[in-house]
Design a protein around this nucleic acid. Structure first.
Lengths: 226, 226
DNA sequence: GTAGTATTCAATAGACTACTTGACTACTGT
DNA sequence: ACAGTAGTCAAGTAGTCTATTGAATACTAC
């Protein structure tokens, strides 16, 4: 048990597990993973969205690749990165869940920032599924068009939050709306709900985002339909 | 969207998630978590088992505590650490699973070390549950007595692997045995199977360990019965 | 109180990590 | 071939993490 050979094996074993942990130990890398959970993206677009330098972003992505969490393909000038498998998002979510359960500071942080949000009363995934089946609601995907194209909730229409103002007249007044976005901490859906309500529509947000919906095995669509 | 206030929030948010990731980024801390998944333990016993200095062990445990993964209680001279909730083990397992899926080096490492093990053909949890219900097998807990006492598979008897030789005569020859231990990479059960087979018993190991069994919600017992 | 043990604290040296900068490669369009 | 863009590589610096050491604290037994 205390023999050196076995200890050596154990150290190597846990060193391998720690490769995954190390990949998850940087805020920026976690954010990258969450963006990639929406669909594949180029280094450049990730860097721009996160406000990081290109070289820095590239290096973080390579750290993720060495931990076997992401892979890439090159197409023309661009390199597209994506998660290697859905299980990667599961791990991210497990980390997030634990943080939500146990970290008091996170709780405080979220309360401060989303103080108002409590009043909105989000829809849960199961509720939305039911109501969508009964065609009771219109589902709005408030993410950028590219993410909608990479995959979206079945039946949702793409209305990026920045375009919502202009497209309001296309959205009938007598319907009820549910907006969703990237995840529980993404504000796109919140803003959309705010705008819609300001214009007299009934609207709520989905608590979760598209990756959670997909991970739950609920119906999704991919492709070019608008 | 690109406003500084929102970026600030995002940075703090992911910094919180990264606290969990950081805790999982050290091989020694992962090993500590797996030992604690067997039940609460003192700093001293953890340090001895892992071959670390006491101070170092204590510091790692405090890192885990700051990430809200473990908590401690003091009883007399000793400080007992334990996982704060079962979800902590879930995260560890998610990390392990991902590593098993995707890290080629881990695969190689395990093959090298357990080359022989392939021949043993482990029992899966569901199979064991069925056969235990039908009283077809004797289940042996090969871990140290303290871990057995902290919780074990319902109906299992405690036979620490180091005591197995002496207790062989208590184990009838005509029964079939299934040994289990701490987890898939723990060798106690393997050794037990080897010894049992060497003495003419039919024996196999459970692929998973006690924490996995418990996490799956299968029947467990706690307490002082031997 | 004194001695002894378990644990934590504080300080430190060495290893590792993150981000920056500037050079370099790979590809596209002309 | 040439210019321009996306991405990677290499090297440097500031900061962080790990393990060690020795001192300090908290408790028990006498």
């Amino acid at each position: 048990m205390a023999d050196a050979h076995h200890r050596e094996f154990k150290n190597r074993l846990y060193a391998q597990f720690a490769r995954i942990g190390k990949a998850l130990s940087s805020p920026h890398r976690l954010e990258l993973l969450e963006l990639l959970a929406q669909g594949e993206r180029t280094v450049d677009s990730l860097a721009t969205e996160m406000g990081l330098s290109l070289a820095n972003t590239s290096q973080h992505l390579q750290a993720l690749r060495q931990a076997a969490l992401v892979e890439s393909r090159k197409q023309g000038l661009y390199v597209y990165y994506r998660l290697v498998e859905p299980a990667v998002f599961d791990v991210c979510r497990a980390v997030r869940t634990l943080a939500e359960h146990r970290l008091a500071e996170l709780d405080r942080l979220v309360r401060e920032h989303f103080g108002e949000r409590a009043s909105i009363e989000p829809v849960r995934m199961e509720q939305l599924l039911e109501r969508a089946r009964a065609a009771e609601v219109v589902i709005l995907d408030t993410r950028p068009v590219s993410e909608y194209a990479a995959g979206h909730i079945a039946g949702a229409i793409s209305v990026p939050v920045d375009d919502l103002q202009q497209r309001l007249r296309q959205l009938p007044r007598n319907k009820e709306y549910v907006a969703y976005c990237r995840g529980p901490y993404c504000v796109y859906a919140d803003r959309a709900v705010e705008i819609l309500r300001g214009k007299g529509r009934r609207a709520r947000r989905l608590l979760e985002g598209f990756p959670e919906w997909k991970a739950a095995g609920l119906p999704v669509e991919t492709g070019a339909e608008v």
